[in-house]
């Protein structure tokens, strides 16, 4: 499903002393089936933006369209059920949203709510627990007895169980150990490829942005600072300093090597081992 924001602004607590404009004229287009990463410092408006994607917030002005669905501006009340069935959101630390008595109930809460026939439920459950790599033994346990990493998987499985066309993920790997983080990112990446799910990911891990995203949006103080291919944005390092973002360690290393030794290395996703070879041959040529 494609997503379009057209001059969207959002103000918290309008006409009160706490009034705070969180988004200013934000416009972008996400084609159906894209993998988009949104980055920005704390307070740049990322979470506010995400909450528009399934109607948790409605714009103060401007247009939000998700597929055929048009989000009305604030004040007008509309049914959002159809939209929420198609757009699955996992917020930060989604395990804090677990509530049911068993893992099974928790995962199937969404599908039940959206009126999936009872006979399809068990199949759906099996499907998602395998996707996220949850042990089958755990489904009758209380989600609160599980480890942090397992709880995270239950929460993500719950979002996937409704079979959304769009998956919105707010720092889904925060607080996970490195291996769990890679596993979870690979899961999102394969869902995106195999099921053609439009994926929108907010992350502070610039390496992940570089590795997985087709397209990147940089937010700063509620405005779009830049958008484009991650590698192009990261190559413009001065612009990123303005918005308090750090480069991925790999790209940063390329820049430093090029500057220090007057080289011409460019990042194409090569492994550190291959880069080592390039460095050796470049430095070698230099002396001959």
């Amino acid at each position: 499903m494609e997503i379009t924001f057209k001059e969207v602004s959002y103000t918290y607590y309008p006409n009160t002393p706490y009034e705070k404009k969180a988004l200013h004229n934000v416009s972008f287009h996400i084609p159906s089936g894209a993998f988009v990463v949104i980055v920005g410092a704390t307070g740049s408006g990322k979470s506010t933006l995400l909450q528009h994607m399934n109607g948790l917030l409605q714009p103060s002005s401007g247009k939000v369209s998700i597929g055929d669905y048009q989000l009305p501006i604030t004040s007008k009340k509309v049914s959002l059920k159809e939209l929420r069935k198609r757009v699955g959101i996992a917020f930060q630390f989604p395990e804090h949203q677990l509530f049911d008595e068993t893992v099974r109930e928790d995962i199937l809460f969404g599908p039940k709510n959206f009126g999936i026939p009872e006979k399809d439920m068990e199949h759906r459950l099996q499907e998602v627990i395998h996707l996220v790599g949850l042990d089958e033994e755990l489904i009758e346990r209380s989600p609160f007895e599980l480890s942090g990493g397992q709880m995270r998987k239950v929460a993500i499985a719950g979002v996937l169980a409704s079979k959304p066309d769009v998956l919105v993920l707010d720092e889904p790997t925060a607080g996970l150990d490195p291996i769990s983080r890679v596993e979870m990112m690979e899961l999102f990446s394969s869902l995106h490829r195999l099921e053609n799910i439009t994926t929108i990911l907010v992350t502070h891990h610039m390496e992940d942005a570089l590795k997985y995203a087709d397209y990147m949006i940089v937010l700063s103080n509620g405005r779009i600072h830049s958008k484009g291919k991650p590698v192009d944005i990261f190559n413009n390092q001065d612009a990123l300093k303005e918005v308090q973002l750090l480069l991925p360690e790999s790209i940063d290393m390329f820049h430093k090597l090029n500057q220090t030794f007057d080289l011409n290395l460019s990042y194409r996703g090569q492994s550190p081992f291959d880069l080592a070879k390039e460095i050796i041959s470049s430095l070698g040529e230099d002396s001959s």
Partner: peptide
């Protein structure tokens, strides 16, 4: 981390 992997790569080469 990447930097250390790169250093290891240089040694291997």
């Amino acid at each position: 981390p990447y930097t250390i992997q790169l250093a290891k790569g240089l040694e291997k080469n």
